[in-house]
């Protein structure tokens, strides 16, 4: 796929200080840099190398990815929700591109 597209699953509501589960998936080939093309030339590495989850501007969780992560990287993790606000998810590509998406959550 030409353009990487993220998908995230975040509950719409939570109780105060609840620990919620967040699931994320992004389309990306995660070219490892270890494969060769038909002519025997190494296909250059191109992966998502960093994922960050911020809540109301503060980093809650992040992850450094290596070529051993499968294509279309999937990450599932937890976050504590102290107040209503916005999660921002960012993926960084080796080529410098940045993909991001946001999800709002309300504390009831």
């Amino acid at each position: 796929m030409a353009k990487s597209k993220p998908r995230v699953k975040v509950p719409k509501t939570a109780s105060k200080d609840e620990v919620i589960t967040i699931k994320t998936l992004i389309s990306h080939k995660m070219e490892s840099g270890q494969r060769k093309d038909k002519d025997g030339n190494v296909i250059p590495r191109q992966i998502i190398n960093k994922f960050t989850c911020d809540f109301n501007g503060k980093t809650v969780f992040s992850c450094d990815l290596e070529p051993a992560i499968s294509a279309n990287p999937y990450l599932e993790f937890s976050a504590k929700v102290p107040e209503s606000g916005t999660f921002k998810f960012t993926w960084l590509d080796d080529d410098g591109s940045e993909y991001s998406t946001e999800s709002k959550i309300a504390v009831e």
Binding site: V19, V60, F61, C63, E66, S70, F77, S78
Partner: peptide, 17 residues
């Protein structure tokens, strides 16, 4: 992969492929 947690992560757990 290396996962970075904070107290705001709530739990030190993750799933990937």
């Amino acid at each position: 992969a290396t996962f970075h947690f904070t107290p705001m992560s709530g739990a030190a757990e993750a799933t990937t492929r």
